[in-house]
């Protein structure tokens, strides 16, 4: 009973509000974002703002989940900026819905997505 009361109290605590991710397409991304990954010539770079990133276990989860996805060439997680950067192979893309699912499956919440290319 003691355990159940604690459980109920913790679950009732409002902690963070979830929001739908929004996407920005096709721009030239800032070098500070793109230099985190090794881009593939002609490939898109996806930069995602993600909630819940606090430790190396978070980074490992994101890395493992994204590297299994077809078309992913490189992945980087920055805990300070709370972003996940993914370099894609040329001719491939991952839509926002799929990105959100991959982030959710890793255990985190997607806030926003930017797609673009590295500055030449």
């Amino acid at each position: 009973m003691k355990t159940l009361l604690i459980l109920a109290a913790l679950m009732a605590t409002p902690f963070a509000q979830e929001s739908k991710p929004h996407s920005h397409e096709g721009e030239v991304l800032d070098r500070t974002v793109t230099e985190r990954v090794t881009p593939v010539a002609g490939g898109t770079i996806v930069a995602m703002n993600v909630n819940g990133l606090v430790c190396d276990f978070c980074a490992i989860a994101i890395d493992k989940v994204f590297r299994r996805e077809a078309g992913v060439a490189d992945v980087a997680v920055d805990l300070s900026d709370k972003i996940v950067v993914v370099a894609l192979e040329p001719g491939t893309d991952i839509d926002d819905k799929r990105l959100e699912k991959l982030i959710n499956n890793s255990g985190y919440d997607l806030v926003s997505v930017k797609r673009g290319v590295a500055a030449s």
């Binding site: 459980l7 605590t13 909630n51 819940g52 990133l53 709370k82």
Partner: peptide, 17 residues
């Protein structure tokens, strides 16, 4: 089982059974 996770911009909270 992870019953609930609260992800915030700078924090994370979890409840496990």
């Amino acid at each position: 089982r992870l019953l609930k996770r609260w992800n915030a911009p700078g924090s994370q909270a979890n409840l496990y059974l």
